[in-house]
Amino acid sequence: MLRDAWLMAVKDLRIEFATRVVTGQILPFGALVLILFGFSISPDLTVVGTDRRSMLAQAAPGLFWVTVLLAALLALGRAFAVESADGNLDALKMAGLDPAGIFLGKVAAVAVQLLLLEVVLGLGAFLLYATPLHDPVMLLTTVILATAGITAAGTLYAALASGLRVRDTLVPLLVLPVLAPVLLAAGLATQAAVFGSADNGWLWTALLGVFALIYLAVGMLAFGLIMEES
């Protein structure tokens, strides 16, 4: 299974390296969204009860994760578009690769791309929204666990929709409601990490971990069935 996962992940990353869709299209898209969020909230607005913290900085964790989710939708759609083209999903079935391995490989490849996006977009958010950083370890843990959850759940639902003609519009409809808990937990954990707020950020990171584990397990068990029906 791990051999098949490695094979799929390396292949998907090689395709990304050849096409540069993430760096050439999805990353600029994410940066644009961050900038537009910045335009939509005046930097002069401050949050009552804080030490003149700007509204933009206060909202930064949520805006960052919404941007990541939108970028993730594009990356997930792309991950299965390469398999739908020219019957490659059939060829994967005929090769006899372990479906759990294919799932893990896809998750790993999208996760690597998403982590790259998050690093760049995170730096952009810190600069644009003038956000402080209180607990870098908590932030790093949040980013890793939220990415695992987003990619595991997203890959599962993107695979479900991959055989359909309406997949491009269906994937966001399926994935966004499912990822609402990740958005909530990641936003609050990030808030705790950057502002050192009273909320216990580690509880939210634990929730992210549980979410990621559940979807990784469900994906590994269900992916074979999903491939058969695709």
Partner: peptide, 26 residues
């Protein structure tokens, strides 16, 4: 083994990369 109207190849990879991937997968 099936040869169909579809190529079962990744357009974005080279011939050699495709062959290496599918040979390993199979």
């Amino acid at each position: 083994g099936m040869l169909s109207q579809q190529t079962f190849l990744y357009d974005e990879l080279t011939v050699e990369e495709n062959l290496q991937f599918w040979a390993t997968a199979n």
